[in-house]
Amino acid sequence: MKTAIRTFFRTLRAVLGPVMLLKERLTQPTGLVREAAAQARVDQQCQSLALYQFSTCPFCIKVRQEMLRLSLPIEKRDAQHHTANRNDLLQGSGATKVPCLKITEANGQTRWLQDSGAIVGYLRQRFAAAP
């Protein structure tokens, strides 16, 4: 019975994964346009961030769409197919739950932010343009 259930979900992922990636590509938001100096500051700040994610996870897609909307060049680390990334995620956050944003503070301390809603909220608060 376990084998049948695993096979069902693997097949479901194999069918739905490409559809989800296509939808992500077709519905990409327009990025926020900043002055060159402001974008350079944002780019510098994004070097201390890394998103641990799976390519076809709907919650990861939500975070990646927000990154595009805010024009954030945050490094994306595949925790599904790369064992080293998965191990870093497990060691740092205590779980292999994605999406997870690794935030390295200026003092060198590291925070791990899980949950797509919390990550989107953090990115909007930190990087959204003031009205």
Rank of each mutant, 00 (worst) to 15 (best):
M1K: 06
M1E: 08
M1D: 07
K2S: 14
T7V: 03
T11D: 09
L12S: 12
G17M: 00
G17Y: 00
G17W: 00
V19Q: 08
M20Y: 14
L22F: 04
E24R: 02
R25F: 05
L26D: 00
Q28N: 09
Q28F: 03
Q28A: 15
T30Q: 13
L32M: 12
L32T: 09
V33Q: 12
R34T: 06
R34P: 13
E35Q: 14
A36Y: 01
A36E: 09
A37L: 09
A40D: 12
R41M: 06
V42I: 13
V42R: 04
D43V: 10
Q44Y: 07
Q44D: 13
C46R: 05
Q47Y: 01
L49G: 08
Q53H: 14
F54R: 05
F54C: 10
S55H: 10
S55K: 14
S55A: 15
T56S: 15
C57P: 07
P58H: 02
F59Y: 15
C60L: 12
C60H: 09
K62V: 06
V63H: 06
Q65G: 06
Q65F: 02
E66V: 12
E66C: 12
R69W: 02
L70F: 14
L70T: 14
S71V: 03
L72R: 10
I74R: 09
E75C: 11
K76V: 15
A79Y: 11
Q80E: 14
H81W: 05
H81S: 15
H82R: 10
A84C: 07
N85E: 13
L89R: 12
G92W: 05
T96S: 13
V98K: 01
V98N: 01
L101F: 01
I103W: 01
T104I: 11
E105G: 06
A106C: 01
G108C: 03
Q109K: 15
Q109M: 12
L113E: 00
D115T: 03
S116N: 09
G117L: 01
G117M: 01
I119P: 03
I119A: 02
I119M: 02
G121D: 13
Y122V: 09
L123G: 11
R126N: 12
A129F: 01
A129R: 09
